[in-house]
Simulated scan of single mutants.
Amino acid sequence: MLPFETFKKIVKSTPLVSIDLIARNLEGQILLGKRTNRPANGYWFVPGGRILKNECFESAFNRLIKEELGLDNVQSTFKGIYQHFYDDNFSEDDFSTHYLVLAYEITFKGDLASLPLEQHSKYKWFAEKELVESEQVHKHSKWYFQENKQADAPLNK
């Protein structure tokens, strides 16, 4: 874990790289958690997290499916690269956050009650239509189910 001030400087100065997990149950519903931290605090959001410095992609993916969903060795489908721009950040200071996100779809058959409550206060299954139409679901999670919604800002911003 980086010191708080060091991490603030990084988030303020450079994009972060993360993996989002689009977890479906056998009925095709999508798992979302209610975020407890910034950015996107209070919104329903897909599980996922940052790739750490000196962590290869495979290790990051395996760590995140274990930490976020309690899974080991799952089959996944790459859904694309997304850019997430937020007006706020994890701290109280006034600067934005920029993520480059690698999105992967997986199947999740686990129990929602066993999921961790560090990043999300609760979990819920959403039908795609319900997810896309809900104002409580963050737009970045909606993008995985909408055509041509991979960035909310031009590449040369």
Rank of each mutant, 00 (worst) to 15 (best):
M1N: 11
F4L: 14
E5G: 05
E5T: 13
T6M: 07
K8A: 13
K8T: 07
K9I: 07
V11D: 02
V11E: 03
V11M: 04
K12G: 02
S13T: 12
T14F: 08
T14W: 05
P15I: 03
L16P: 01
L16T: 01
L16G: 01
L16D: 00
V17D: 05
D20Y: 03
D20T: 09
L21M: 03
I22V: 15
A23S: 09
N25F: 03
N25W: 01
I30F: 02
I30N: 00
L31T: 04
R35S: 08
R35F: 09
R35C: 10
A40N: 15
A40C: 11
N41G: 04
G42T: 09
Y43M: 06
W44I: 02
F45D: 01
V46E: 03
R50A: 10
I51Q: 05
L52Y: 11
K53D: 14
K53M: 11
N54Q: 09
N54Y: 06
C56H: 08
F57E: 03
E58N: 14
E58I: 14
N62S: 14
N62V: 04
N62T: 06
R63K: 12
L64G: 02
L64N: 03
I65G: 01
I65Y: 01
K66S: 15
E67L: 10
E67A: 09
E68L: 03
G70M: 09
L71I: 06
L71P: 00
V74R: 07
Q75G: 12
S76C: 08
T77G: 05
I81N: 14
Q83D: 09
F85D: 07
D87R: 15
D88M: 11
D88G: 13
D88R: 06
N89Y: 07
F90E: 04
S91D: 06
E92H: 06
D93N: 13
D93W: 08
D93R: 09
D94C: 11
D94Y: 08
T97L: 10
H98V: 12
H98Q: 11
L100M: 13
V101P: 00
A103Q: 02
A103I: 03
I106W: 04
I106C: 05
F108G: 00
G110C: 08
L112A: 14
P116K: 07
P116N: 12
P116Q: 11
S121I: 09
Y123I: 03
W125T: 05
W125Q: 08
F126G: 02
A127V: 10
E128N: 02
E128A: 04
E130F: 05
V132R: 04
V132W: 02
S134G: 07
V137D: 00
H138T: 00
K142W: 04
W143G: 04
W143V: 01
Y144W: 10
Q146G: 08
E147G: 05
E147I: 11
K149P: 00
K149E: 11
A151H: 12
A151V: 10
A151K: 11
D152I: 12
D152Y: 06
A153T: 15
A153K: 15
L155N: 11
N156H: 14
